[in-house]
Design a protein around this nucleic acid. Structure first.
Length: 1197
RNA sequence: GCUCGAGUGGUGGAAUUGGUAGACACGUUGGACUUAAAAUCCAAUGGGUAGUAAUGCCCGUACGGGUUCAAGUCCCGUCUCGAGUACCA
């Protein structure tokens, strides 16, 4: 082969590597290990653009280099293949996400294969594969079966907690929990029922169910994590996000906050990522302080009206402060408007103002509150608290600068030491309830601003703290005193919140969870994976349940341990499970053969009946109203009042349609949790539909209530055809519950970060079918030595995976405490968008009031003209140069004869509009970069083909008939038509050139624009490299000894490239290759002594050409494990060095001077030089600086 | 606002950690080859200025100061851009 043919060479070696498994890593080896990993790609439908492989190329270079230097290298790749885009696509097209995902992965793989990565594909993983998510589910169970022991500072199995409870109750336990939980002793614990015990344990588990305020995105129909929201809208799609209370699985990451913070220290990560994580964790050290409230308060607050005789005594407000040393500076207190005590403590006089303020705050959206941090607002509640140390009366305010979600939602305001408190105090100075600011800093003027510095400033007016300062222990002294008096205690707060783990989505891991009596139960790990069921649509159900609610079979048979159909929709045939998923359609005979079915749970049936009769006697007004409309088949269906179902007594029920109607009284809001659990059970387990209405709805809009009931009745199937009457305890209505052991499965799925939080450990033993990975494999590979990826995962993936790995470590599954020892964050490759300039029409308007100067008819005509303005494009350079003073459409028409334009000008009704006021402007339109050449010339005919709507447009070109586009650097994306596909580059220039050029663009960590034009330089280098080994007759390498110059070039390059790879400075390596090849070409070097090591040197960067040259050099083995050349100093030794000779620091000329002489001799030689004498003529040498090997400098006067 | 990072030719970017600023490449200009284009090769290319020329001088690493024999590099201040964060008590 005479010429360099990248196509043939690259295809040949890619096949060779694949056929020989060249890059399969060994789990047993004497070699030292090296684990290089790229961040998990999500296989999107758009395929890879040239920006994606950047990091993969870098990690591949390091991996190949490490193999050359004797390491056993693990360099795997796989796919984070669960996720929203495939699901959104499924919703739109009905295409199953598994199919889309499979196709996308195939495309990714094809693209990656062309670039020649040394991935070990035998270890590929996909998060959406049941073989993989089986273990994600297993880890979820591990989290469920663990609690966090604050004393041992580690996660421990929940069984150990149960043991502690049995032995000594809560007395010796300090566990990470959401809030202060109920305390009990061993006897009490042992007396609890099994369900009660489980409910208690649920509060301790590392994954737990909680009713929390979540970020609900209605457009996506799901909950989002904090890091999935950017500026108040969803990261994907930019949809609005609202706060909503939902029952969700949570992950107790907060328990690990301190370790996640401390362990950052030893990680070799960029300072900026560490800083982002530190801020996100947000540790603050301080103390809790309780302020007692002055007076007694009615039980439900003044607002409730009745029940006035019930009072609460000894109320207190807890605050968190980082400056307990400023406790004597407390001037007032501020509560978040949402604080639970606000209604209770507000005095009658202030009630109106407080209500109004609360209303105003809640009306403001999160975004508004975020955007507007300058406005100070708040209201005095009229109430006072007592200072815990000085017993002074402290007025209590509410203000929205206090966040309900952080700390306790209340602050002790110290205006002299906190800027926000200071601003608040001044804003309301001299108003009712705002005392004068207390100053506790000696010698500090706080009239203008607060003094927030934590320094040696002494405290004053602070009793026992007088004379102390922040630095000299005031903080510790204050906490000690607070603890002594019981008014507070030292505490550390974190900004990091527990992570919401439930997603109301289809395309994610199913939870291995079913619900029994409303309590979550884990499926035994030996029955995993719990596979994702098929659904008819990827949307929520009509009732708003997640898509899994549509699955025909999504119940857990706890006897046979398998997924089965909804029992309430199936005909139960005696004891045991139902296999039919048909909807119920009883025949007379079948009905009779059904055994022992009840509407109420048999064991408590009689008790329930008694209670029900009792309740029927005391209905509420709303119940009476509704019953009037339901009784006696007024809606065509028989309803029963207070009829026991299962273990509950619903207000109304239609048994044949299994429809329950509940009226929510005023207590509903205090027991939402319980009511929700009850609804859940009735619907999921017993197959009823529950409708809930409030008292107000029934009294105020009975019509619509009845309409909803009627609609629901009609939608429900008839569960008992031919029967309108069902006895409470007859044998004719099915009681399917515990006897069958069939329970509803969790309908939510796991979030995207579940599978990606532990994948780096699966690669160590990816094909293990019996366990997550073998401990031998993990002990050998330890953790990731080099992790390369973008920095956008700083608060998501990179934090969550650290959390999960710490958990697995605590439970003894993993020997390391961190997943990624070193990380490099590659910068984004940006696209160079191309814009064509389109001529637009402009007319003079006054600012702000667009059409004020025109009549109605004129405006109409203008708008019409604007719509009709012909499509006319103008070359950007021409526009820049000649259109500074924007011409009018008339002038334009005079200069250019375009028919469309002429017709347009002729059509202007000059009785309405003077054509001479219409000037032109320009508008930029994205053009596809593939139809623009390197000189920014647009291919006009291609453009017309691409944009058929502009097929008849006219183009104003440059004088040389070219049409220029303008360029702008933007993010590379499909919508900006600036995507460059690596396949095209591989076709034209080859993978080796692509790899080298991506590295050559600049430092890995820096963002930089892609410019395809520049690639010719690298391609030229490849051809020159090839030529070194060839002459006109083909391959020609000589075995003769190389010249010292060539040896010097080689060793200079060896030294540089070795150092560069260690420093991840790949761009400079490529430069030094170019320099080496340029020099060797000039030296006409073709010696094996130089060219053989050179091939190995370039092999990590350009592996295909290196393999080809290596085999041409006569080697049979792949170059991939050839020893990397070693730098030898002896080739660098020189007899002379070119010294810069400078005067007063300014370099004037250079001199070649010997290197083996002393400093004094050097000075002598320099001074003897004519040029030096010339410069020194008539001047006094004040000082001579000679640094051997570096520089000579004369200080002259 | 706060925190972190960065400002070097027309462009991407080098500069051994205080020692010849602009390596390497793109682009541009001129030339060779060619009927022509492409490809390839050669030369010039920070700005200004003097000279027919060889060559020389001045200014130059965002801006203003400083330390030093010597500063893109270290220190102080200012500006601009990028990233993170958003009242965290």
């Amino acid at each position: 082969m005479l010429l360099y043919d990248h196509k043939e060479i690259e295809a040949k070696w890619q096949k060779h590597w694949k056929d020989n498994g060249t890059f399969h890593a060994q789990n047993h080896s004497d070699k030292p290990k090296f684990y290089a990993l790229d961040m998990f790609p999500y296989p999107s439908g758009a395929g890879l653009h040239v920006g994606h492989p950047l990091g993969y190329i870098a990690s591949d270079i390091v991996s190949r280099y490490k193999r050359h230097t004797g390491f056993n290298v693990l360099h795997p790749m796989g796919y984070d293949s669960f996720g929203l885009p495939a699901e959104q696509y499924a919703i739109q097209t009905g295409q199953h996400p598994a199919i889309t995902t499979k196709d996308n992965i195939a495309r990714y793989r094809e693209q990656m294969d062309r670039i020649g990565f040394s991935f070990d594909w035998s270890r590929e993983v996909r998060t959406s594969s049941p073989d993989y998510y089986k273990y994600t589910q297993e880890i979820f169970i591990l989290l469920f079966d663990s609690w966090y022991d604050n004393i041992a500072n580690k996660a421990r199995p929940i069984s150990e907690l149960e043991f502690c409870f049995r032995e000594s109750g809560t007395t010796s336990i300090n566990a990470a929990t959401t809030e202060d939980l109920q305390q009990f002793n061993a006897a009490q614990w042992n007396a609890f029922t099994e369900n009660e015990k489980q409910e208690i344990l649920l509060d301790y588990r590392l994954t737990f169910l909680a009713n929390t305020e979540v970020n609900w995105c209605p457009a996506l129909g799901t909950v989002l994590a904090n890091d999935e929201i950017v500026n108040g809208v969803s990261e994907r799609g930019g949809h609005p996000v609202v706060r909503k209370k939902m029952r969700q699985w949570m992950m107790r990451i907060s328990a690990f906050a301190d370790r996640l913070l401390n362990d950052l220290e030893d990680l070799d990560w960029s300072e900026s990522i560490k800083e982002i994580q530190r801020n996100w964790i947000g540790k603050s050290i301080g103390s809790m302080v309780s302020f007692k409230l002055d007076g007694n308060f009615p039980l439900w607050g003044n607002a409730a009206g009745n029940g006035a005789d019930a009072i609460q005594k000894d109320l207190k407000i807890d605050v968190f402060t980082t400056r307990p040393d400023t406790i004597y500076g407390v001037t007032f207190m501020t509560l978040a408007p949402e604080h639970e005590l606000v209604d209770i403590i507000t005095t009658a006089e202030q009630k109106q103002a407080v209500e109004a303020y609360k209303k105003a705050t809640s009306a403001r959206s999160e975004r508004e509150r975020m955007a507007d941090v300058k406005t100070i607002s708040g209201v005095f509640t009229g109430a006072y608290a007592t200072h815990p140390l000085s017993d002074e009366k402290i007025p209590i305010w509410i203000g929205d600068y206090v966040l309900a979600g952080y700390g306790t939602g209340a602050v002790m305001a110290v205006p002299c030491g906190d800027e926000r408190d200071h601003a608040f105090a001044n804003h309301f100075a001299e108003k009712n309830g705002m005392p004068e600011i207390k100053n506790i800093f000696e010698g500090i003027d706080i009239s203008e601003e607060a003094y927030a510095a934590k320094d040696d400033t002494k405290l004053t007016n602070s009793e026992f703290l007088n004379g102390l300062s922040y630095k000299s222990g005031a903080m510790a002294a204050a906490i000690e005193k607070l603890e002594e008096t019981g008014a507070g205690k030292g505490k550390t707060n974190y900004r990091l919140r527990d992570a919401v783990f439930s997603r109301q989505r289809y395309w994610g891991e199913p939870f291995p969870v079913y619900y029994k009596d409303g309590l979550p139960q884990m499926i035994d790990r030996k029955y995993l994976p719990l596979e994702l069921p098929e659904v008819d649509e990827y949307l929520p159900t009509e009732d708003g349940a997640p898509p899994l609610g549509r699955a025909k079979e999504w119940y857990w048979d706890a006897v046979n341990n398998k997924v089965v159909a909804n029992p309430s929709l199936a005909l139960p045939k005696g004891k045991g499970t139902s296999s039919s998923s048909e909807k119920a359609s009883f025949s007379e005979t079948e009905e009779k053969s059904a055994l022992g079915y009840f509407t109420a749970k048999p064991e408590i049936a009689s008790t329930l009946l008694e209670r029900a009769q009792e309740m029927r006697k005391n209905p509420t007004d709303a119940e009476v109203t509704l019953w009037k409309e339901l009784k006696g088949k007024k809606l065509e269906y028989k309803f029963r009042q207070q009829h026991p179902i299962g273990e509950f007594i619903p207000d109304f029920v239609c048994l044949t349609r299994k429809l329950i109607v509940e009226v929510d009284g005023k207590y509903h809001e205090f027991q939402i949790d319980k009511d929700d659990a009850r609804t859940h059970k009735l619907e999921q387990k017993l197959g009823y539909k529950v409708l809930r209405f409030t008292n107000e709805q029934i009294t105020n809009s009975l019509e619509s209530v009845l309409k909803k009931i009627t609609e629901a009745l009609e939608q429900r199937p008839n569960f008992f055809p031919g029967k309108n009457e069902v006895l409470p305890f007859g044998k004719d209505l099915g009681w399917v519950g515990d006897q069958n052991e069939i329970y509803p499965l969790e309908l939510n799925t796991m979030p995207g970060w579940a599978g990606s939080s532990w994948y780096m450990f699966r690669y160590m033993d990816a094909n293990n079918e019996t366990e997550i990975f073998s401990s031998e494999a993990q002990e050998y590979w330890q953790n990731v030595d080099l992790y390369i990826g973008g920095s956008e995962h700083a608060t998501g993936h990179l934090l969550y995976s650290r959390f999960w790995i710490k958990l697995l470590h605590d439970l003894g599954k993993i020997t390391v405490i961190e997943p990624f020892q070193k990380m490099i964050n590659q910068g984004m490759i940006l696209g160079e968008s191309a814009f064509v300039h389109k001529v637009t029409m402009m007319f003079p308007v006054t600012a702000g009031d667009k059409f004020r100067n025109y009549t109605k008819n004129q405006i109409k005509h203008l708008e019409e003209l604007n719509d009709r303005f012909p499509d006319l494009f103008i070359s950007s350079e021409f526009y820049e140069k000649n259109f500074h003073d924007l011409p009018t459409v008339v002038e334009l028409n005079n200069e250019w004869s375009f028919e469309n334009l002429k017709n347009f000008v002729d059509s202007i009704d000059d009785s309405l509009i003077d054509p001479n006021i219409l000037s032109i402007g320009d508008m930029k339109i994205h053009s596809d970069v593939s139809i623009v050449d390197v000189h920014n010339n647009l291919n006009i005919s291609e453009f017309k083909k691409w944009r058929a709507d502009f097929a008849d447009s006219d183009f104003i070109t440059e004088q040389d008939r070219t049409f220029k586009v303008s360029r702008e650097v933007e993010k590379m994306s499909k919508s900006k038509y600036n995507v460059v596909n690596p396949d095209d580059i591989c076709d034209q220039y080859g993978a080796d050139t692509l790899r080298l050029y991506e590295m050559f663009l600049g430092p890995l960590e820096q963002a930089k624009p892609w410019n395809t034009a520049g690639i010719t330089g690298v391609y030229g280098f490849m051809k020159k490299l090839w030529k070194l080994y060839h002459d006109d007759n083909g391959f020609n390498v000589s075995d003769e000894k190389a010249s010292p110059d060539s040896m010097k070039t080689l060793h200079k390059t060896i030294k540089k490239v070795r150092q560069d790879i260690e420093d991840f400075s790949f761009n400079t390596s490529v430069s030094s290759f170019m320099i080496a090849v340029n020099e060797l070409t000039a030296q006409k070097c073709n010696n094996r002594e130089v060219l053989e090591p050179l091939a190995v040197l370039v092999s990590p960067y350009a592996p295909h050409i290196a393999e080809e040259l290596w085999s041409l050099l006569g080697h049979k083995e792949s170059i991939s494990t050839a020893a990397f050349p070693v730098f030898e100093e002896k080739h660098m030794v020189e007899s002379s060095k070119t010294y810069p000779i400078s005067f007063n620091g300014k370099m004037k000329f250079t001199l070649d001077l010997p290197t083996d002489v002393s400093k004094d001799e050097l000075e002598k030689m320099v001074l003897e030089n004519d040029k030096v004498q010339e410069q020194l003529e008539g001047k006094v040498v004040r000082k001579t600086i000679i640094v051997p090997g570096k520089i000579v400098n004369f200080v002259v006067g």
